[in-house]
Amino acid sequence: MAVPGPAPIPVPASTPASAPASSVGPLLRDWRRRRRISQLDLALRADSSARHISFVETGRSRPSEEMVLRLAEHLDVPVRERNALLLAAGYAPRYTETTLDDPAMDVLREGLTELLRAYEPYPAVIVDGTYTVVAANRGIALLMEGLPEHLLAPPLNVMRITLHPEGLAPRILNLPEWRGHLLDQMKRQLALSRSPALRELYDEVAAYPVPPSGSLTPADGAPCPVLPGFALPLRIGHDGHALSFLSTIATFNTPMDVTVAELAMETFLPADPATAKYLASVTT
Score class of each variant (00 low, 15 high):
75 L>F: 06
72 A>E: 05
81 E>T: 04
56 V>M: 03
12 P>Y: 06
94 R>Y: 10
13 A>E: 14
42 L>I: 11
16 P>A: 12
92 A>I: 01
66 E>M: 00
108 L>N: 03
97 E>A: 11
87 L>H: 03
60 R>W: 00
89 A>T: 11
94 R>N: 09
27 L>Q: 15
67 M>S: 09
85 L>R: 01
82 R>V: 09
21 A>E: 15
93 P>F: 08
20 P>R: 14
50 A>W: 06
19 A>Q: 15
109 R>T: 07
63 P>T: 05
74 H>G: 01
84 A>P: 00
43 A>C: 10
97 E>Y: 00
107 V>Y: 01
25 G>V: 10
31 W>H: 13
89 A>H: 07
35 R>N: 11
23 S>Y: 12
112 L>E: 09
88 A>S: 07
27 L>P: 05
29 R>N: 13
73 E>T: 11
66 E>S: 00
55 F>K: 02
89 A>N: 08
102 D>Y: 04
55 F>I: 00
50 A>F: 06
85 L>C: 04
59 G>A: 02
57 E>H: 03
31 W>F: 15
95 Y>T: 02
21 A>T: 14
67 M>Y: 04
55 F>H: 08
50 A>Y: 06
35 R>H: 13
97 E>Q: 14
29 R>P: 10
107 V>H: 04
23 S>L: 11
33 R>V: 11
69 L>M: 09
62 R>G: 03
23 S>R: 15
68 V>E: 00
15 T>I: 14
102 D>W: 03
95 Y>S: 02
14 S>A: 15
34 R>Y: 10
13 A>W: 02
59 G>N: 04
33 R>G: 11
59 G>R: 06
47 D>F: 08
19 A>V: 15
22 S>W: 15
21 A>Y: 05
30 D>R: 15
37 I>Q: 14
16 P>Y: 02
15 T>M: 06
102 D>H: 13
96 T>M: 02
17 A>S: 15
67 M>C: 04
108 L>D: 01
31 W>I: 13
58 T>P: 00
15 T>C: 07
63 P>M: 06
11 V>S: 15
16 P>T: 04
41 D>N: 08
97 E>F: 00
30 D>P: 02
40 L>N: 12
32 R>A: 12
48 S>L: 12
63 P>K: 05
41 D>Y: 04
40 L>E: 15
15 T>S: 10
91 Y>C: 09
48 S>C: 12
74 H>R: 07
46 A>E: 07
12 P>F: 04
75 L>W: 05
94 R>T: 10
63 P>Y: 07
66 E>R: 05
56 V>G: 03
39 Q>N: 08
51 R>F: 02
58 T>K: 04
17 A>T: 04
61 S>V: 01
57 E>I: 02
41 D>E: 14
105 M>S: 02
105 M>I: 01
24 V>M: 15
109 R>C: 12
81 E>D: 14
89 A>R: 09
93 P>N: 08
